[in-house]
Amino acid sequence: MNKIPPYLQPGDTVGILCTARYVNTEQLQPAINLFESWGLKVKLGATVGQEWHIFGGNDDLRAQNLSDFFNDPEIKAIVCARGGYGTVRMIDKIDFSGLERTPKWLVGFSDVTVLHSHINSMFEIPTLHASMPVVIDNKTPEAIDSLRKALFGEEISYSFKIDSPFTRKGSAEAVVVGGNLSLLYAIQNSVSEIDVYGKILFIEEVEEWLYNIDRMFWNLKRSGKLQHLAGLIIGGFTQLQDNEIPFGMSYEEIVWEKVKDYDYPVCFGFPAGHFADNRAIKLGEKAILRVGEHVSFMQRA
């Protein structure tokens, strides 16, 4: 049984910290202003403004900061400042006992996929795949409002017209899991690996080589990860790279080649990922997905 964290109320405190790359207070000011406009208080972590190589402090500091926020009764939601790389370096140093005792929303995407997967699979606590503070001022009003709705316990629902020939119609009502493809690939066969059986799998990616996308999807197929899904949602695959001699397949063709023989609904172009219209998704929570002439996605509070 999922342990759904309490939704936020005006006057609650959100904590912002670094689990991966470095960020300073000035970069966070737009997000601080946004959260305060929603009636929330903001507490900055010890990692904000700290710099160790490309990271927001060394691995021990980043792990300790997150552990402290899990144990802090004042903080009702934890927002990762940015992604990049670094969460997998310290995941095994984190004390999750505070989160187990008192579930709270953890927010982020990209490199934060490591935490989403670990928390969803190990503790059956939902998390929130959504925009992060360092890029919040570049997001669409719809993306920002979806974050607010998800945090405050309002229904989130999206509908968009299909703009891809590689789509399979159908419907599914199941738990959503997933995140960034490279990170899902990196944590396979570890304690943080997600269970995808009977789930709706969401995947997005950025700045990846087409041949590497192909390699990672072959791994998902050969390891059985794509066989027993309830549905597949492909979000943004942006700023992709190719060699001088072209790979010869688009990312859609790469994915479709691996899933065409199954029977669950598949959609491309979902509004979540490394772009302005990054809509919130509650990972580890049920959703209703319908793929027809349009795609609809809904998660109730």
Rank of each mutant, 00 (worst) to 15 (best):
G108L: 02
R148C: 03
V112H: 04
L128V: 10
L61K: 08
H274F: 03
N278K: 04
S131N: 11
S37P: 07
A276L: 01
L40I: 07
Y264W: 10
P30C: 08
T102N: 09
K258M: 11
G170P: 01
F270D: 03
I54C: 09
D263I: 10
T140I: 04
F123Q: 06
H129N: 15
R82A: 12
R101K: 14
D263P: 02
P141R: 04
N65Q: 09
Y85T: 11
R290S: 12
R168F: 10
A31P: 02
T102D: 09
Q9C: 02
L183Y: 15
F217R: 05
S171F: 03
G236A: 11
L289E: 05
A272R: 00
F202W: 00
F109T: 13
I94C: 11
F217M: 15
P10S: 06
A301I: 00
E257I: 00
K225S: 08
L210D: 10
A63W: 01
Q50H: 01
A174E: 03
F69N: 14
E26N: 08
V175K: 15
L201K: 06
V48D: 07
Q239W: 03
G56W: 04
W256E: 14
R82W: 08
A31M: 01
G269H: 02
T113K: 09
R148D: 00
